[in-house]
Design a protein around this nucleic acid. Sequence first.
DNA 1: TACATAGTAGACAGACTGGTCTACTCGTGT
DNA 2: ACACGAGTAGACCAGTCTGTCTACTATGTA
Lengths: 192, 192
Amino acid sequence: MSDKRLQLITTAFKLFYLKGVHAVGINEILAESGIAKKTLYHHFSGKEDLVSAVLAFRDQRFHDWLESRFNESNNGADKVYALFDALDDWFNDRVADLLPFHGCFFINVSAEFGDPENPLHRQCSRHKESIRSLIAKQVDMLDIDSSDQENMTDALCLLKEGAITLAYVQGDRDAAVKAKATAVMLLRRECA
Amino acid sequence: MSDKRLQLITTAFKLFYLKGVHAVGINEILAESGIAKKTLYHHFSGKEDLVSAVLAFRDQRFHDWLESRFNESNNGADKVYALFDALDDWFNDRVADLLPFHGCFFINVSAEFGDPENPLHRQCSRHKESIRSLIAKQVDMLDIDSSDQENMTDALCLLKEGAITLAYVQGDRDAAVKAKATAVMLLRRECA
DNA sequence: TACATAGTAGACAGACTGGTCTACTCGTGT
DNA sequence: ACACGAGTAGACCAGTCTGTCTACTATGTA
C-alpha cells in the first residue's frame, strides 16, 4: 500500500470518527494530511470509495485487537470476560490503537447511511457479523450445551452492542463493567 | 402549537429519520411540506433549532408509546416482557405511530453530532435517561432484592440498546426476541 | 535517454448549503 | 377601519461541497 494512500486513510478515519462522515469535507482531509487533491483522486474514485477504504481499515484494526485480547486470555469463562475487559479498556481510552473512544465507527456510519441497501451500510453489517464470529469461537470453547451456544453468543453480542451505545450516547464509562456483571450471571446459570 | 410548525416538525422528522440530519437540507423539508422558507425561520431560529424540536417531538411520542405498553401489561415479570414485545412490534413495523423502523433516532443523531458537549447529543442522552427511568419503574415492582433492582435495570437497558443496534445495523428483525430470551434467563435467576 | 508513475499546487466548475430579504396576501381582533 | 401576525413565493447572498483540470516536478526503470 502506497504511503500517501495509507496516510489519507488514517487522516480520514481520525476526522470521520470524530465528527462524522458528512460533517467532514474532502478539503479538510487534504488540509489536515497535507496531500494534494489530485493524489486523493488518484487513489480513490471518490469520497464514498475513501469511506469504504476507511471502514475496511478500521475493521481490520478492531478485529485484530479483539482477537489478540482473546488470545491473551485464559481458557474457559475468562475468554468471555476478556470481551468485556477489552471493551472497558476501549471505553476508558486505554487502547492507543483504537483512538480515544467515540462510539463504534460502524454504528455511526450506519446511522449516516441509513438505507440498508447502501454499500457502506452493508459493509458495517459485515463487520458486526465478523466480530460475532470471533465471539462465537470463544463460546464454542465453553463447557455448555451446544444447543445453548447460539443463544449465549446472541446474549453476549446484545450486551456488547448495548454497552457501546450506553458508553457513547449517555457517556457511561462503566457500561462494560455492567455488561460484564450481566454476563457473569448468565454464565453461572449455564454452568450451574 | 401552530399548524405549520407541527407540519414542519413531522416532515423534518420523517426525512431526518430516513436519511440522516446532515443529508437532508432545509430546502428539501420545505419542498416536501410545501411550506415557505420564511415561515420556517419564523418558527425556528435555524436548522439546529428545528432538529432540537424534532428530537423533543420524537422523545414524547416514543415515551408515551412505551408507557402505554407498560400500562397495558399485567403486573410482575410481564411488565418486563412487555418491553421486549413492544420492541419486537417496533422492529417489525407494527407500530404506526413510530414510522417504519430505521434504528433509534437518538442513537442516529448522537452519531451525527458526536461531541458529547453538543446540545443535540445531550438531548439524546436525556431521552435515554428518561426511558431508563420508565424501565426502572417496572423493575421496582418486581419481587426482587432492592439491591438487585439497579443491576436488573442496567441489564435490561443494555439488552434493549443491543437489540436496537442489531436490528438496525445487521437488519436482524428477531433481535427483540433474542433479547427477551436473555431477559427471561436473568429473571428466572433472580426469582429462583 | 526516454518514459511512465506518483506526486504537488491550486484554479475552476457546477451544484448545493443555510440563511436573509423584499413584496405580497389573508384573516382576526380591536 | 385598520393594524398586525402568520403566511406565501422566491430572488438572492456568501460560502461549501465534490470532483476535474492544467501545469509542473521528482524518481525509478527499461
